[in-house]
Every structure is written in C-alpha cells, then in structure tokens.
C-alpha cells in the first residue's frame, strides 16, 4: 500500500512551485523598479547590473517632497474616484431597469451596450476631443471623468444586470409588502445583496480611472497642474534626459493605491467572480 501522504506532498510541492514562479514573474518589474530607483546616475549609464552597488536610499524620502509627483497622485485620485462614483451612479439604475423590466427592444439595447464596450478610447479620441471642445469640457476633471466613465459603463451595466437578475423577485415582493418603494427596495435589498458585484464594478472603474492616459493627455494637455500620474510620468521622459530614478519611484508609488484597494475588497471580489463563473 502506498502512503497517501506522499501524493499529497508531491502535489503541494508542485502547486507551491507553480505559485512561486507566477509570483516571481509578477514581482520582477517591481524589483527592477526599486533597483533602478536606488541606482546613482553613474550606474545607470555604464554596464548594467542587477543591484545598485551604492544604493541611494534618500530617493524614498525625496520623492515625497516632489511637488509634481504629489500633485499627479492627487489628480489621479480625483479622476479615479470621480470615475468610480459616476459609473456606479449610472450603472446601478440602468442595470436595475434592465434586470427587472421587460420593455420593447430591451434585448437589442443590451446588445448595443455590449458592442460599445468593444471600442477603445484611442479609436474615438478625435471625435471625443471635438465633442469635449464643443461642450466646453476641455482642461478640467469633469470632462475626463465623464469620458472615462462612458468607456466602462457597458461592462458595469452588464455585470450588475447579471447580479440583480439573480436576486429572487419574491424577495422584492416581500420588500414591497414591507412598505418599500422602488428606491427603498434597491437600497435595502438589492444593493446589500449585490456587494460582490458592486465591489467588482467599483474596482474595475477605479483602476480604469487610475490608469487612464489617452483621454487625460488629450483633454488636459494645456493644464499641467491637472495631469494625473500617468501623464506626468510620460511627460517627464524628456528628449535628452530621462530621470530614471524619479520615473521608477513614481511608477512604484502609483501602484500603491491599487494594492490597497484590492486588499480591502478582495473578499467581495472573490465572491463576485465565483458568482460570475457560476460558483
């Protein structure tokens, strides 16, 4: 008889090994970022080495005194939160209506919504720019937030429609008898039961807003004090001189909010994806 323990250990070994490799691949860019940020100028130019020989630790402190970096982070946060808020504010009522009402052309509408998701911002940036100019939305956050939200709304609406449809109508009828109108039902019953879906939508739109580049670059080009980190980093790549250390440091910092966000909502996200793929 073979000992079952052996099997288990071999299986674990393989599993952890695979996980380590994946983690290594994910972490490698961070390693490069940190190591580059710590290198003095001299080491950047000459022969490449993995680790700095004389690390310049002060970069960790200096970066926080850099006005442009701080401003960029603040702008990115404004845009990301704005996009998250606007997306949820529009997607929730839209998805609720689609999940609960049968109206003419409903299926057609769902398809159109899905099709618009296939457009990437870069494809429509010129007409978008034109529209923003006409509406006087250039040079400010509202224009960027509005345009960015438009790109994630389709996905968000589909995702939330799925979550809302899965909630039993008897539950809503129970709420109706408990003196809830449409809005109260949404607030007291539908939304609390859709937290995983709401978390997924929020994370997705926050990330989109945080990483957004093309729209900010076009809409905000004339106002550097409103540039988000993405545009700031891009523009710091000068023609002659690239401030590698600052660049890497900024890139590193800009991943922090994303990490924080994920650690907060991970339990909802897990449930959200579990629901999506059918448990």
């Amino acid at each position: 008889m073979r000992r079952p323990g052996f099997h288990l250990d071999a299986w674990r070994f393989t599993l952890y090994g695979a996980a380590l490799i994946v983690a290594g691949i994910c972490l490698f860019p961070y390693l490069v970022m940190v190591s580059t940020a710590l290198k003095p100028d001299a080491e950047l130019a000459g022969a490449q080495s993995w680790l700095p020989t004389a690390p310049n630790w002060s970069i960790f402190v200096d970066i926080w005194t850099d006005e442009t970096v701080l401003r960029g982070l603040r702008n990115s946060l404004i845009i990301a939160f704005g996009v998250t808020f606007l997306t949820l504010a529009c997607a929730i009522p839209a998805a609720y209506a689609l999940a609960r009402h049968r109206f003419p052309l409903r299926d057609g509408f769902m398809t159109v919504v899905l099709v618009t998701q296939m457009l990437s911002p870069i494809v429509v940036i010129v007409p978008l720019f034109q529209t923003a100019t006409d509406l006087g939305l250039l040079g400010g956050f509202p224009g960027v937030i509005l345009a960015s939200s438009a790109f994630i709304l389709p996905f968000s609406i589909w995702l939330l429609t799925g979550f809302f449809s899965a909630i039993s109508t008897e539950l809503e009828e129970a709420a109706t008898l408990d003196a809830c109108g449409r809005l109260a039902t949404l607030w007291h019953v539908i939304l609390p039961l859709s937290l995983p879906g709401l978390a997924a939508t929020a994370v997705y739109s926050f990330l989109f807003g945080w990483n957004e580049f093309v729209i900010s670059l076009t809409f905000l080009s004339a106002v550097p004090e409103k540039w988000p980190v993405t545009v700031g980093v891009f523009s710091s790549i000068g023609q002659w001189d690239i401030g590698w250390q600052a660049l890497m440091m900024t890139a590193l910092i800009s991943t922090l909010p994303v990490l924080l966000l994920f650690s907060f909502v991970q339990k909802y996200l897990d449930r959200g994806f579990a629901t999506l793929i059918g448990r």
Binding site: S168, E170, L171, E173, A174, A175, L177, H188, V189
Partner: peptide, 10 residues
C-alpha cells in the same frame, strides 16, 4: 402579509 414559497427572508 404574505408567506412566500421560497420564504423570501432577507
């Protein structure tokens, strides 16, 4: 007041 088949408890 109604008692539902699925109970419909929150």
């Amino acid at each position: 007041a109604m008692v539902f088949q699925s109970y419909a408890l929150y």
